[in-house]
Design a protein around this nucleic acid. Structure first.
Lengths: 215, 215
DNA sequence: TGTACATCAGTGAACGCGCGTTCACTGATGTAC
DNA sequence: TGTACATCAGTGAACGCGCGTTCACTGATGTAC
């Protein structure tokens, strides 16, 4: 909690919170994590941040604006984690690609509140252009990874990287949504989501003629 | 609306609704469709069905029980549509398989309220065993289709049908959730979701050694 | 260094609202005889 | 065929609650001079 003023001393806060915007985001995350996107209310976020119910209006137009901000931060965090996993394709593109898949699932499992805000809060894409852009930037990491993976293929056999990225994204997202989510809606699975995704990706890449697993 | 009593005459209803349970389900569907799972309330469902707010309690324990019933019906409908699309693999397993994929997307797009209740209402799988079972039955259609697709392969090269079905399910579900949903959270796509799924499935099957699209 | 003042980020009380749920009740229906 | 009665599926009024939002306000902070 960012209850204390910044700077030395860490004394009790006074009239001003000092970091309310961040505290509200944290509160929203903890509420979404605990009760789902529907269970998050503006009033309770204020209470959890220790301010009056009117205070949040200084920082967010309404409940949806706070939710959208959480989702945007989620996409940024998501992009960072995918990007770190890709690590510019080092030491090899296939290895790095595998890491990206794992990072996708790790995010769904490790940050269920962000994941829910991003994909299950019912936020309209059209009404929140900044969300779409943040989502596109995260997707772009995947596309770059796909481009690197197929860079050495003969041009005639090279698949469109965009389509490839959309397939990998969809497969990852499906597995994450159904089997790797961090809440009670997760379904049981006879193997780990990571193994399922890795196997599916290998088959898919094989189908594209990459890595030629099968003679 | 099932406003009138069953039977000839279709006269005005009296004290008893006659078909309240069904009317509540319909009301729930229309509310979920219009405002998402979070926007559906017990009270408004009652209002839309034209009864007092206490009446629904004769038929459902609480709001969640109604939501779960909607989801269960959704899974049953889903199973029926997938099953009809599969049509026992006629005229050929690959053709029928393609139809099943299209049916998955058609359901997400055509029945957004059911889809949301089934996958995005935050219902706990553990607390609603009947939901899990209904979901499993729908999934089973996919598994049977996968088994039929690989039935003629030499045993040594035959992939596990369960894994294959999970991959296809995940890919379909990812595409449906991200690009083919029937509400404002749908993302734009440079092609149709159907084409994306069909292309992805072909590549995947190719990777398994089915249909040998590529030399 | 001190002071006046503008601005910012809170307060807290109040509002109307709709929700979920309960209660004793009652009209309608079905059935035993 | 009629009647008494049990059961069912509704009513409608009431409750406490928490929400979103607004309002005039005020304490704290920063800055110009």
């Amino acid at each position: 909690m960012s209850w204390h003023r910044q700077g030395p001393g860490g004394g009790r806060r006074g009239y001003h919170h000092g970091n309310l915007r961040e505290a509200l985001v944290e509160a929203a995350l903890s509420l979404i994590g605990a009760k789902g996107p529907a269970g998050f209310t503006f009033a309770e976020a204020a209470r959890q941040a220790g301010v009056s119910p009117a205070a949040p209006y200084r920082h967010f137009r309404d409940r949806d604006a706070l939710m959208a901000d959480v989702a945007r931060r989620g996409f940024e965090r998501f992009e960072q984690q995918l990007s770190a996993a890709w690590n510019e394709g080092q030491p090899s593109a296939p290895d790095a690609f595998k890491r990206v898949g794992k990072a996708y699932l790790a995010f769904a499992r490790g940050e269920p509140a962000y994941f829910a805000a991003m994909f299950e809060a019912g936020l309209s894409i059209a009404e929140h252009r900044e969300l779409q852009q943040a989502g596109d930037r995260a997707f772009n990491v995947l596309r770059i990874a796909c481009e690197a993976l197929i860079a050495n293929m003969p041009e005639a056999k090279r698949p469109p990287a965009m389509m490839m990225a959309l397939h990998i994204w969809s497969l990852s997202h499906g597995i994450a949504s159904l089997f790797a989510r961090g809440d009670a809606a997760r379904r049981a699975l006879p193997m780990s989501p990571e193994d399922l995704l890795e196997a599916g990706t290998l088959v898919y890449l094989d189908g594209l003629g990459i890595r030629g697993k099968r003679g």
